[in-house]
Amino acid sequence: MGEEAAHRVHSRLDVLLAERGMTLVELSEKVGLSVVNLSVLKNDRAKAIRFSTLTAICDALGCAVGELLEVQGEP
């Protein structure tokens, strides 16, 4: 199984931003990450994420990690 096929983690960043009426630019300013890096996460192209980044995003959005990331599909 290739690396892409094994990747089943899905980001719900777009949903959380919409629910909070926040843009990617606003989130970028709050967490100190570039819009490009947040876009990579939002579009499920991230291969890794630091715990400090997860913490900053969850703090800014008022959510838990499980609300931001979910595993989809069958193993």
Score class of each variant (00 low, 15 high):
G2V: 08
E3Y: 15
E4P: 04
A5T: 07
A6S: 09
H7K: 14
V9L: 09
V9S: 04
H10F: 06
H10S: 05
H10Y: 07
R12G: 05
R12I: 02
R12P: 03
L13W: 05
L13S: 06
V15T: 09
L16D: 00
L17S: 01
A18E: 10
A18P: 04
A18F: 03
E19G: 06
R20L: 04
R20H: 07
G21K: 05
M22K: 12
L24T: 00
E26A: 15
L27D: 02
S28D: 08
S28C: 11
S28P: 13
K30F: 01
V31P: 03
V31R: 05
G32S: 10
G32F: 12
L33D: 06
S34Q: 08
V35W: 04
V36W: 13
V36R: 15
N37Y: 11
L38G: 07
L38Y: 09
S39G: 15
S39V: 05
L41W: 01
L41R: 02
L41C: 04
L41G: 02
K42E: 02
D44K: 01
R45V: 06
R45S: 08
A46P: 05
A46G: 09
A46S: 12
A46I: 07
A46F: 14
R50F: 15
R50M: 11
R50K: 15
F51K: 07
F51A: 14
F51V: 11
S52W: 07
T53Q: 14
L54T: 04
T55N: 12
A56E: 04
A56Y: 03
A56I: 01
I57S: 01
I57H: 02
C58P: 00
C58S: 05
D59A: 10
D59C: 07
D59N: 14
D59V: 03
A60S: 13
A60K: 07
A60N: 13
A60T: 09
G62V: 00
G62K: 00
G62S: 04
C63V: 12
C63P: 05
A64Q: 04
V65G: 01
G66M: 02
E67H: 01
E67A: 03
E67D: 15
L68N: 01
L69I: 13
L69T: 07
L69H: 08
E70W: 03
V71P: 02
V71L: 13
V71G: 04
G73H: 07
G73I: 09
P75V: 10
P75T: 10
